[in-house]
Simulated scan of single mutants.
Amino acid sequence: MQKLIKLLNTIFFSLFPDLCFHCNKMLNEGEEVLCFHCHTKLPVFDGCWVNSQHNIITHLFDHKINLKYGFAFFYYESSGVTRSLIHHLKYKNQEIIGTWIVNHFGDLYNSTINDIDYIVPIPLHTKKMKERGYNQVDTFCSALSEKWNIPYEKDNLIRKRYTNTQTKKSRIERAINLKDVFDVKEKKVFSNKHVLLVDDVLTTGSTLESAGYVLLDSEIKHLSILTIGIVV
């Protein structure tokens, strides 16, 4: 029976081999999500390792919202490896990518995250959730929660108004589009807590800023931000 299963697996993977999510080459044994070559090309964002309280991310939100920590895993480039990962995670239902990132890079911030009380994702509107079928950062946040032993609270911050895609909007247009979009169902849940707000890509910061205002209004103790990629 085991020989038959092994044979069937061999046939399946020969017909439908795993491909690198960036270069589309067939993955070799021991490779997952990315081939070794593309893995080495991942532009790791190390600015927040040295000082998680004073870096590009925290400076971006100066005079807007008060952040304790700012984290990102990778630089985001228009044709780079990070873009390929996030594109497949966001639009191709490849949620394995979120877990893979945490498994390979989740130890980077172990010394910093000890005082965080909740991991909270940027929520999707119910209409967008039905269209897409999943929140692209859900598996990513779940993996972070398990690795860091921090509760994952995905239902208390909500998106109460449907918005069109932000991709081609200017910063001003993004801010207008996101006005009064988010809300907190039960403020007491986050009261006096340190909340880590998570999104896939940090570009202008409008989405995180809008959600951050709402969380700070819930009398949280500290607000920090984590994204998979950052555009610089």
Rank of each mutant, 00 (worst) to 15 (best):
S145F: 02
D107G: 11
T112W: 14
D115A: 05
C141S: 09
Y152C: 03
K130P: 08
N149L: 11
T163K: 01
F140S: 02
K154Y: 04
G133F: 04
N164D: 15
L144W: 06
P121E: 05
N110K: 13
E131K: 14
I150V: 11
N156C: 15
K130M: 13
V137W: 07
Q136E: 02
K127G: 00
F140A: 01
D155F: 13
S111T: 13
D155R: 11
I158S: 03
K160L: 11
E146M: 08
S142A: 10
K128P: 02
D155K: 14
K127S: 00
V120N: 12
E153C: 13
I122W: 10
K127C: 00
Y152H: 11
Y152W: 09
T163W: 03
L157D: 06
T126M: 06
I122H: 03
I119L: 10
Y134L: 10
P121Y: 03
M129G: 01
C141N: 10
E146A: 13
P123D: 02
I113V: 15
K147C: 02
D138L: 03
L124E: 06
L124C: 08
Y109P: 04
R132Y: 09
T163Q: 07
K128E: 12
H125F: 12
Y152V: 01
Y152I: 05
E131I: 14
D115V: 04
I113M: 14
M129K: 02
N149A: 09
L144V: 07
R159E: 04
N149T: 08
Q136A: 02
S111I: 04
Y118W: 12
C141Q: 07
N156R: 07
Y109F: 15
T126Q: 07
L157E: 07
E131C: 09
D107I: 08
I116F: 05
C141I: 09
Y162I: 15
R161G: 05
A143K: 10
Q136D: 03
